[in-house]
Design a protein around this nucleic acid. Structure first.
Lengths: 141, 141
DNA sequence: CCCCAATAGTTGATATAGTCAACTATACGC
DNA sequence: GCGTATAGTTGACTATATCAACTATTGGGG
């Protein structure tokens, strides 16, 4: 390739990344995809997490998230339970199985991440994330 | 968001980028998507461009590219013509309409790019692309 | 207290994107 | 000429994403 353009780098990276994660996940675990994994992360890091929180944090369509969550529940990784103060809100939390799988997932992800970052310094990675974040904010809505 | 992880930054960026490009394209042009656009770029920058070149440069499935090219031809942006030395190779080139649209596209893209890069220095962008390229190579196959 | 706009989530239908495998046609080495 | 490699096409399928309509609940104003 000659001088790679920004858009082409982005596009290629996103695609390769998705494929790699999927392979890693498929190889190690049951049928989870990259978005499932993101959902699990969000559930893990958000106390009192609702489907809406996931929609907000991922920027996806709520229909997509609803179905995704449904799958996680079917897989018995996550359970939902109505908030007693607001029955519209269904709070998502890990089952025991979910917790177990999540910690295995974190290990698998670390492997992908470290492969991704081979030959890069801490600084380069930090700056990469920071630039990416700026870009995300630039085009946010 | 707290400390954004690499994977989440990547994933979000790719998603937002796709949405933004699509909006820009949809707004300005007929039904072209980001991959169509990449194809057009490759056709533009590759002399004697074949479908296979596009497959090689994008890393997509050749079936996908075949259909994409078919659409571009249907839209009368691109035409194909067998290489006289090797009739298996179908060389892709712009039609007049294609040339016109491509230059309009370049303008639209510049707008997206510059929006994306607001507040970033040349150096940051260069390093971003270079880091991304390293990552792509790290997970290539 | 009841109505209503707003909010959380669900569902159906559909569109878009990506993948796999089988197939045709041509080319090239021997 | 024959077998194998290459370029491209097609069908069938799966995965992802999007839109719009719908239910259930909530909280506020009359």
């Amino acid at each position: 390739m000659p001088q790679t353009s920004l858009s082409s780098a982005l596009f290629t990276l996103a695609q390769s990344y998705r494929v790699t994660v999927r392979e890693a996940i498929n190889a190690n675990e049951l049928g989870l995809n990259a978005l499932h994994v993101r959902c699990l992360h969000i559930i893990a890091e958000t106390q009192h997490c609702t489907a809406n929180d996931i929609v907000a944090k991922t920027g996806r369509d709520k229909a997509q998230i609803a179905r995704l969550v449904k799958e996680l529940i079917k897989l018995e990784l996550v359970s939902k339970c109505a908030d007693k103060n607001d029955k519209r809100c269904l709070i998502l939390s890990f089952t025991e199985q979910g917790k177990t799988l999540f910690s295995r997932l974190q290990i698998a992800e670390k492997q992908v991440d470290s492969k991704l970052c081979e030959g890069l310094t801490e600084t380069q990675i930090t700056e990469f994330i920071s630039t990416a974040t700026t870009m995300i904010n630039n085009i946010k809505n």
